[in-house]
Amino acid sequence: MNASTNINIKKKDVFKKRSGKNILLQRLSRNKIAYVSLCFLILVHILVFIGPLVWKVSPTGLQDAGALANWSLQHPMGTDDLGRDVFSRMLYGGRITLIVGLAAMLFALLIGTIIGACAGFFRGYVETVLMRFTEAMMAIPNFFFVLVALTVLGTSPIMVVIVIALSGWMEIARVVYGETLKWKEYEFVEAANASGATSIRILTKYIIPQIIPSIIVSGTLTIAAAILTESAISYLGMGIQPPTPTWGNMLQDSQQYIWTAPILGVLPGAAITIVVLAYNFLGDGLRDALDPRFVKK
């Protein structure tokens, strides 16, 4: 049903979309919130990836200031319950959190794209099996499985990334599936088919490049979801474990200090919220920028 309506999109739109990312950025700049979010995210990434090179205090070392020290020049955000520099931990923790989000997103994109593209391209029983499987996975409250899996498989960063990715690829698969169905019908794909190109070549050379904008949108939203999931499992004590700091386990750690030093929980919580918010705004903005209805306005 979806496919038939999609085919009605005029050729003119197609060429607009194909003419590149510049237009995307241009449209994005018209959406103020999304634009601000993008700038903010770039700033945060610079801060957490380059910041530790400048701010050389160890995130795990015990500071002379002792535990729960107040904000000062030496420790701009004070020290935590064990006497470690909170600012340094926020930077390193942010780095791990963002890397986990990014890695989980990439992995989820890989799974989602393969499944979605194969289902859309090959049709037939491949489509039935893959899409039914995707729907089934969507129907299951995946958090239950995430918990069971992490309890028994352990909480190494790689395992956390894999489990988060396995719980979050379904939406991507659906988007890619829909797009593949649409693009498969275009003449240039049919032409390639007629000229005897292999299926894999058609998929990778002709179809997937067309879907990239949609994948970027899904990816952006998936990062947001992955960061949230990471922090949620950390809250339950099943995420990445200390001494590696992440915003999630810093937040979990601070819980017991909710009575005596609530600020320890406010900082990582606020950081997670703002970053996730920015990714969500950016994702929404990108989607609007890609939406033909939006362009007409």
């Binding site: 947001a224 929980g265 406010v266 997670i272 919220t273 918010l277 969500n280 705004f281 929404d284």
Partner: peptide, 14 residues
């Protein structure tokens, strides 16, 4: 979007 972005447990703690 804010509602989708706030970690539920953090909001709960607050």
């Amino acid at each position: 979007v804010v509602g989708l972005s706030v970690p539920a447990f953090w909001l709960g703690l607050m």
